[in-house]
Design a protein around this nucleic acid. Structure first.
Lengths: 207, 207
DNA sequence: CGATGACGTTAATGATGACTAACATCCGTG
DNA sequence: CACGGATGTTAGTCATCATTAACGTCATCG
């Protein structure tokens, strides 16, 4: 066991995989789509295998099991989100710009990876324990990046309120998967940015 | 079969149930909590029975099966949401007031019935077909109430944009279950109202 | 060339789970 | 008081599913 958890110690998702054809990636992608649609327990190993053209137990050549698959998926996403936040913070000249960068990054994820985003905030409860804690930690750090930036912009606003507002904004942005198709991504992107920004601005005006 | 769909033809959720003790209601409530936490397929009939103090197959005295239970649950919620919207529209003097009433109603649901709200926008995919269509219909009607009101307030804004904005606002408001505990409901309520209102206002300004 | 390892395949195996059957209990009503 | 219906209970039944076993294939590399 622990064969697969190399993701943790290794180059994370740095190297896609040496081999020509990347089954691992295909599987993760297909599984994400299926989990998003029917929920973790609503999808069988057979379903996942079938979706990538192999059948059933072939999965075990790539992952330790269904749980490990989910764990890696959520770990990957929460890492990437977290990293994107760090990047936004370190490359922006001032808090205003940082907030814009955070918004853009989250919007990009929500629009380009709807399945991953969906699974990310639905299936944490099905992740077994060592990974669960790790994921929670990354999520918490991600939120704190936002809260820190908002606190710089609005020092008068209590942190609890900033945290609540942040979660609400995530809800707004992550709703994209539900409303898919209403509007082309090209229009959706600025719309979400505008709405989220306005919501935050309204939230921080401590009454 | 079709025993349970009396909800549709009957007094909806008017009369709780004649019998003294209301098992049906207890079951629906417990199931909602469990489904919200672990997903439909992650919860067994035994789990649900156990949660209300009876064990397993006793459920079949009240529902036709697990699917029927879910169907009734989602049908009930989407009806109630829809009704609340109709009430908001018919009792408010002008569109501005209607929008406030719609916001308040949705916020009340989100805060008071987090489990139901969660299940409502996660498990539609697991509802079998006759009910599925019906639920979709009610959801669509609910959205249209919002869109209609917004269109009255902002005739210049294209309907597609209004629809997308509406979904985004639902995402914002329904995020409450995730951020539970961050802020007392007493503060959460006006915060959500403020944020949602600001987001809408920003959205309708067609650039 | 021959071994090795990556990647698949098709049968078990063992749980778990939805649903049914057969059998109480209890309560109100004729 | 006897009966019927509502409500439970426990012990199957039959599928489905995750996981493992045992067994190919094929390319690479020594």
């Amino acid at each position: 066991m622990a064969t697969v958890s190399s993701t943790t110690s290794g180059t994370a998702s740095g190297t896609p995989t040496r081999g020509r054809r990347n089954r691992r990636g295909e599987i993760l992608e297909a599984a994400a789509r299926l989990f998003a649609a029917r929920g973790f327990h609503g999808v069988s190993i057979e379903d996942i295998g079938g979706a990538v053209g192999v059948s059933g137990p072939a999965l075990y050549r790539h992952f330790d099991g269904k749980d490990a698959l989910l764990s890696e998926m959520l770990l990957d996403i929460s890492s990437r989100l977290r990293e994107s936040a760090v990047a936004a913070v370190t490359t922006s000249p001032d808090p205003r710009a940082t907030l814009d960068a955070l918004l853009d990054a989250q919007i990009t994820f929500a629009i380009e990876q709807p399945a991953l985003i969906t699974v990310h905030d639905r299936e944490l409860g099905n992740v077994p324990e060592p990974a669960r804690r790790q994921i929670r930690r990354l999520q918490r750090l991600y939120v704190e990046e936002w809260v820190t930036v908002l606190a710089e912009l609005h020092p008068a606003c209590p942190a609890a309120r900033l945290r609540a507002a942040t979660h609400a904004v995530f809800g707004l942005l992550n709703s994209t998967p539900h409303s898919a198709g209403e509007l082309p991504a090209q229009d959706m992107r600025p719309l979400l940015h505008t709405m989220a920004h306005a919501a935050i601005t309204a939230a921080v005006k401590t009454r």
